[in-house]
Computed example of a mutant assay.
Amino acid sequence: MIAAPTITLEGDANGAPHPPENSYAKFFSGKYVHRTITGGIGHNLPQEAPKAFADAVIEVAGYAK
Rank of each mutant, 00 (worst) to 15 (best):
K65C: 08
A56D: 11
M1Q: 11
V60M: 06
T38D: 14
G11K: 01
G62W: 00
I58W: 14
I2E: 09
E59L: 08
I37E: 04
A3H: 11
G30Q: 07
H43F: 08
I41L: 02
G40L: 09
S29G: 05
P20S: 06
A54Y: 15
T8L: 13
F27R: 08
E48T: 06
A49H: 02
T6N: 02
R35T: 14
D12R: 00
I2W: 08
A64E: 12
H34M: 11
D55T: 06
Q47C: 10
S23H: 02
Q47H: 05
V33P: 00
A52V: 06
N44H: 15
P17T: 09
E59K: 14
A61E: 04
H18D: 07
A61G: 07
M1T: 10
D12Q: 06
Y32F: 15
H34K: 08
K51G: 13
G11C: 03
T8F: 05
F53E: 02
K51W: 14
A49Y: 06
R35Y: 15
A13K: 11
V57H: 09
N44W: 15
A25T: 06
I37N: 02
E48Y: 01
E10F: 00
E59H: 15
K26I: 00
V57N: 05
P50M: 03
E10I: 00
H43D: 10
G42T: 06
T36P: 04
G40W: 14
N14E: 13
I2C: 10
H34Q: 04
D55E: 14
G42Q: 06
K65S: 12
K51I: 12
T36A: 04
H43M: 12
A49I: 14
P50C: 02
Y24V: 00
S23I: 01
P5D: 12
S29V: 10
K65F: 08
G15T: 03
F53L: 04
T6W: 05
N22Y: 02
V57F: 05
Y63E: 08
T8S: 07
V60K: 00
K31N: 07
E48V: 07
P17L: 10
A56F: 01
A56W: 04
H18I: 04
K65L: 11
A25S: 11
A64D: 12
